[in-house]
Amino acid sequence: MFKFLSFLIAFFFSLGLLAAKIDTLVVSSKSMRKKIKNLVITPDSYQKKELRYNVVYLLHGAGGNHKSWLEKAPELEQYADLYNVIVVCPDGDKTSWYFDSPVDDSMKYETYIVDELVSKIDKKYDTVPNAEYRAITGYSMGGHGALYLAFRHSDIWGAAASMSGGVDIRPFPLQWDIAKRLGEYANAPEAWEKHTVINLTNLLNGENLDFLIDCGVDDFFYNANLRLHQKLLERNIPHDYIERPGGHTNEYWRNSIKYQMLFFNDFFQKSKEQTK
C-alpha cells in the first residue's frame, strides 16, 4: 500500500499538480518574552481558499530547530498536498523538552505551544479550531514532547504519535540538558517524575485521545517505549504500537512519518464522519 502511495505522490508531482507552500511564521511569545520561528506548510489547495484545514504539529529532537523536520523528510510538502493538511513545525529550542521548566522562566514551551502557537495558527490560517482536527507528533525529544503535550491537553489534540520518543527521561539524568530544565535528579526527583511521559498514563481514559507509539528495536529509547506500551496494555488504554528494525536515525523517522501521516488522516476522516 505504501509503495503505491509513494508512486501516486511522485506521479502527481511529475505532472506539476501539487505545489505546497512553505512559510516561516514568527510568533512573539509573551510567556518567554522572545520571538520564535515556526515553519508552516500549506497545501496547494489552500491558495484557493475553499476549505478549512486539519493541522499536524511536528516537534523536532534535541539539537534541532524549526527547519529540522523538512530537512529530514522533504516529502512533508507532498503529504500536505496529498492529505490536504497544514503542517506546523515549531522551534522548540535545542533542548526544551517541550515542558515548562520549573527552574528556568525562559523555557516555557508547553505554555508557548498550547496557549500561544495553536491560537496564532488558528487565527492566521483557515483551520478547523478544535481537537478533533489537530494532531501532534515528533521524533526523539519531540516524541516525548508530542505525547507529553497530548496526554496533558487532549482538549487541544485529538490524535498524537511519537517516533523514537524519550518517553521516560529518568534513566538519562546527565543527558540532553534535562537537568538544566528540571534541576539535578538527586535534588529534584519529584520534578523528574512529574515531567516524564510514562508517568502520565493516569490522564488517559481510553476515549479522549487516539495515539500511536513507534520505536525501532535497536534504539536506545526502545526499552522505555516498550514499557510504556505494556503499561498501557495493563490499564486497557487503546493505542497503536509499532516496533520494527531500526535505530535512532533520520532514515527511521523519515519512514515513520509516512505511516503517521496516514494514521492522522484516518483519524481526521473518522472525525469528519462523526460530525455529519
Rank of each mutant, 00 (worst) to 15 (best):
Leu233Thr: 07
Asn205Tyr: 12
Ala188Tyr: 13
Thr196Gln: 04
Glu207Tyr: 13
Pro171Ile: 09
Glu251Asn: 03
Ile257Pro: 09
Trp192Glu: 05
Ala191Arg: 12
Ala150Lys: 01
Glu193Ala: 11
Ile198His: 04
Ala159Asn: 02
Asp266Ser: 15
Leu204Ile: 08
Ile237Arg: 01
Phe264Trp: 14
Ala224Trp: 00
Ala191Val: 05
Ala161Arg: 02
Arg152Ala: 02
Ser256Phe: 04
Ala160Val: 00
His153Phe: 03
Asn205His: 08
Ala188His: 11
Ile169Ala: 12
His153Lys: 02
His248Ser: 12
Gln175Asp: 14
Pro245Gln: 11
Asp155Arg: 04
Leu147Trp: 03
Val217Phe: 13
Asp177Asn: 15
Asn250Leu: 05
Lys180Asp: 08
Leu204Val: 03
Glu184Trp: 05
Leu147Cys: 08
Asn205Ala: 07
Lys231Pro: 14
Leu212Phe: 14
Leu147Lys: 05
Leu226Gly: 01
Glu234Cys: 08
Asn187Glu: 15
Glu207Asn: 15
Phe172Ile: 03
Tyr241Lys: 04
Asn208Tyr: 04
Ser140Lys: 04
Tyr259Ala: 12
Gly165Leu: 10
Asn223Asp: 10
Arg170His: 06
Asn205Phe: 13
Asn205Ile: 06
Glu251Ile: 07
Gly143Gln: 03
Gly142Trp: 11
Glu184Leu: 10
Leu226Tyr: 07
Leu233Ile: 11
His239Met: 12
Asn225Met: 01
Trp192Pro: 08
His239Lys: 06
Arg244Tyr: 10
Arg244Lys: 09
Gly145Asn: 02
Ala160Arg: 01
Thr137Trp: 11
Ile156Thr: 07
Asp177Arg: 13
Trp176Pro: 10
Asn236His: 14
Glu193Gln: 11
Ala179Val: 12
Ala159Pro: 05
Val217Arg: 13
Ala131Cys: 01
Leu233Arg: 08
Ala186Ile: 13
Gly143Pro: 14
Trp176Ile: 07
Glu243Pro: 12
Arg152Asn: 00
Ala159Val: 00
Ser256Ile: 07
Val217Asn: 12
Tyr139His: 15
Lys258Asp: 15
Pro171Ala: 09
Pro173Val: 02
Thr201Gln: 02
Ala186Val: 14
Tyr259Cys: 08
Ala188Asp: 09
Ala188Met: 11
Gly206Pro: 05
Gly183Ser: 10
Phe172Asp: 05
Asp168Glu: 02
Ala179Gln: 01
Lys194Ser: 10
Ala135Asn: 12
Phe220Pro: 11
Ala131Trp: 01
Glu132Val: 13
Met141Asp: 00
Asn223Ala: 12
Tyr139Val: 13
Ile136Asp: 01
Arg152Ile: 03
Asn208Cys: 04
Gly158Ile: 08
Thr196Arg: 04
Ala224Gln: 10
Arg134Trp: 09
Asp214Glu: 12
Met261Phe: 15
Ile178Ser: 02
Asp218Leu: 12
Asn236Lys: 15
Asp177Thr: 14
Trp157Val: 00
Phe221Lys: 06
Thr137Pro: 14
Lys180Val: 06
Ser140His: 01
Ser140Thr: 07
Ala146Cys: 06
Lys258Tyr: 14
Glu132Cys: 15
Ala186Cys: 15
Tyr259Lys: 13
Ile169Gln: 03
Ser164Leu: 00
Thr137Asp: 15
Leu203His: 02
Asp210Trp: 08
Ala150Arg: 00
Thr249Glu: 02
His239Gly: 10
Pro173Phe: 09
Leu203Gly: 09
Ile136His: 06
Phe263Val: 11
Val217Met: 13
Ala179Met: 03
Gly183Ile: 00
Ile213Glu: 11
Ala135Cys: 11
Ala186Asp: 14
Ser154Asn: 06
Arg181Tyr: 05
Leu212Ser: 14
Leu200Arg: 01
